[in-house]
Amino acid sequence: MKNSEPENLGAHSRRTFFKSLGTVAATAATAQVQSVAAELEKINTEKIVGPNAVPVTLRVNGEKLQLLLEPRVTLLDALRNYSSLTGAKEGCDRATCGACTVLLGDTPIYSCQKLAIESQGIEITTVEGLAKNEKLSKVQQAFLDKDALQCGYCTPGFVMSVTALLKKNPRPNADDVKHACAGNTCRCGTHPRILQAALRAAGVETASKTEVVDYV
């Protein structure tokens, strides 16, 4: 199979190469050479797709989402514009605000700066996937208890960041929370409450710092 390495193709354009590869693959399969088939499967994944829409299968919140997308469609746009999963928000579309944060596996990422086509084959969790049977997750409940949201537009992103943090580090301190949430922006200024909510979800209560005093 060494001969089919692309650099040995000389004058062939890579499009021609990959077109002809289909034929090679068929021939090889009939030859039933296991190792060759495996190698070919690998090379077939190198086939060029697009620029027009291609089938993309995402696994979101435990369910399969089969879409037809151009390769340039981001994961965020796939969720928001091609499915009804609008929980992840678009705040900047430039990996700077965190409203679009989702989990790839257990890892929080900006879905606005990730192509949908490269997000296949790994479990994606959005904010819609956290509450089970209408019961808020521990993090969601802590956000509710601490009023860690105002307009709520950044909230799904923060919830995902905190959820991911607690999976990685169940007993974070305040600095850990700040480090984990520095990539999320809130314009309503809810940060102190988000910090308290994250700590509460980790089992650490913070005392209220508000005092009510009568004027007279």
Binding site: K178, C186, L195, E211, V212
Partner: peptide, 24 residues
């Protein structure tokens, strides 16, 4: 025209905030 160089305060910048409410 972006959040990279139009800089908003983030959670790491936010201080300890205490509030006193005058009840009237």
């Amino acid at each position: 025209p972006n959040f990279e160089t139009y800089k908003l305060p983030g959670i790491a910048d936010v201080p300890d905030i205490e509030i006193v409410l005058i009840n009237m």
